[in-house]
Design a protein around this nucleic acid. Structure first.
Lengths: 348, 348
DNA sequence: CCGCTTTCCTGAACCGGTTCAAGCCCCCCC
DNA sequence: GGGGGGGCTTGAACCGGTTCAGGAAAGCGG
């Protein structure tokens, strides 16, 4: 009897019918106290637990639920996306479930499968692409006719998409620095397998090519996506660079920038006087740092909201609607971490 | 025909049997191409989607899933808890679903219900208590025999519990400051309805009473739980206090402390020279601030891990195990935001 | 003591899928 | 032309609950 007990097992052991056990479970008044107690005891003894799927079978279909798959729990970036989804989905009566893929494609598969198995109404997914994008789970969703929206454009799959133009975002960051007279700019790039990171590197390249400056490969410094990465890379890089020190750094994201700020501080370099720093994402935190950080604003909330809109529209349509692609704009938010070399020259 | 189509509807419209439609859905090889196509077309046209609950009925019970209910998405505190749960639950084959109650008891009900309906194996819940704690949803979980662990002790419900002693935590924060010679200490308290906040206020009181200092009610300054709250309250408070300025502030949590730091910076007050600041939670961020922040370390990961341990042990037990109560310790992590007035005096 | 409620319980039907033994049809081959 | 086999489809049973018509037992009034 390794099997989980069913309502029939309980009924048999309690010497009553399935119907009676069900009545006890649902607190119907039509059960005598004695029977109720007896059944309750058996339920407890057998550690019986009704199977939700069997219950739902009868009473209409599941409630409205949206599943959101993010890449990391510890990046405040996603808090913004979540807020956006919630703002739209909440009032329409959808409950939001969040799961993280921890950046692993395999975990993403598991998580998406689990959500599909839980019968969510639809999904919003930030795909965690490794080298070889395995999108079988997305095809599985299509097969099962579960609508989903991607928050990152990926090859080989047709779907609703909401994203931003990362190339432009990074180009603008570099452009901002060049405008302000910087010419020795390095870019702390994110994880190499990340599509966002690659696109942003491409944007940096573009930023150079649109100016009179020459891009050199060593301007791209590989690092990760977390504070520690920015910190460690920052320490190592600025210790090693000697006199050939860049006047500005653009970072893959704000967390890396925060780490870099710490490294610079510990090395006795001032921001922005010695080094200008630009982040990306524009976390709410940016205004609260000792040196408020210039950052490229990614419209996190808007992305979440747009994705939720599209998803819900799909869910509530009679017939499958056409696929939507939305690209939102990023923009540089200037704060105190970037100095204007040109005006400094002028002053001198 | 408002009803969602079932497999029978599809079968009828396609002129085949239910079994055949099922075979098409599951990519069985035993269907002729012509039939397959016809069925697929009908499926698409009717926007048919199989009901997961019906599918699960046959093929054993649902997968292993743990639901975690947190209070806010935008507090990095929970990232730590989530990491702890994941560290334990992941290797044991559990998928983690997270939902936020947004601090509202009503939303918590909805979210818990939704997770129960989705048939999660068990739940870990950070209860969002309002004034009158409505715990009917927790009784509902008991009735349905869905195990859960609470991350905050609450009245009127027997359950597994993992928490910390907030009174001691706040007492230690105040004690730390008193040891260092501070006597004019105020506490930026969290939201009044929050149990954590109340306990921490109690701890502040305790910290005073264990010293020779007298506690005064006006030492407690009400605020919220977010950066903006600390910022605004900080601006208002330090503008108003004039010459009677406290030498130290303990904060409900680190976010409030970060907000306060910004306010002090903008007011031209130096930390820790003019004002010492102590946070609570000990977010990873604390080491990265311009002035690294002294904070009471709440063992977030350990809490999540302990809760997951207990829950899984319960889930995998044959018989319902006895309830467990675990209380973890908090400890002050001293960084650069608290100065030692005593040694400063000595030096003078 | 009889009829009529009321209380409590049973058992069969049902929800919407999956599974599989059985059967049909067609084709091939001897 | 008959036998055999493979491809395709059917239909009934089943999963584990809920629902509800109906029946047995108990209570009650006259």
């Amino acid at each position: 009897m390794g099997h989980n007990p069913t309502i029939a097992d309980v009924a048999e052991r309690a010497g009553v019918s399935k119907g009676t056990v069900s009545a006890v479970l649902n607190d119907k008044s039509s059960v005598s106290d004695a029977t109720r107690k007896r059944v309750r005891d058996v339920i407890k003894a057998m550690n019986y637990r009704p199977r939700a799927s069997a219950q739902h079978l009868l009473q209409g279909d599941g409630d409205r639920t949206i599943g959101l798959v993010i890449k990391e729990d510890d990046n405040p970036y996603y808090a913004g996306v979540i807020a956006g989804v919630r703002r739209v989905a909440g009032p329409r009566g959808y409950v939001l479930l969040v799961a993280s893929s921890e950046g692993s494609s395999e975990a993403e598969h598991r998580v998406v499968e689990a959500m599909a198995a839980k019968d969510v109404s639809g999904l919003i997914i930030t795909p965690a692409l490794g080298e070889e994008a395995d999108v079988t789970h997305l095809f599985e969703l299509k097969r099962r006719n579960i609508p989903f929206v991607l928050l990152e454009r990926i090859r080989g799959i047709q779907s609703h998409i909401v994203d931003i133009d990362n190339v432009l975002a990074a180009r603008d960051a570099v452009g901002h620095l060049i405008e302000r007279g910087h010419s020795h700019i390095v870019h702390f790039a994110g994880p190499p397998y990340s599509a966002h990171s690659q696109e942003r590197v491409e944007g940096v390249r573009r930023g150079f090519s649109e100016s009179s400056l020459v891009f050199r490969d060593e301007f791209i410094v590989p690092t990760g996506a977390h504070m520690e990465d920015g910190y460690e890379t920052g320490l190592a890089y600025f210790r090693a660079c000697g006199a050939d020190r860049p006047t500005a750094v653009t970072c893959y994201n704000d967390l890396v920038a925060i780490g870099l700020l710490r490294a610079l501080r510990e090395l006795g370099l001032r921001v922005p006087d010695d080094v200008s720093v630009v982040g990306c994402d524009d976390l709410p935190l940016m205004d609260y740092l000792g040196t408020p950080l210039t950052s490229v604003r990614i419209p996190k909330e808007e992305m979440g909201a747009a994705a939720a809109e599209i998803l819900i529209r799909h869910l509530e349509a009679e017939e499958p609607p056409p696929l939507e692609k939305v690209t939102l704009d990023a923009e540089v938010v200037v704060r105190a971490s970037t100095t204007d070399l040109a005006s400094a020259d002028r002053a001198a």
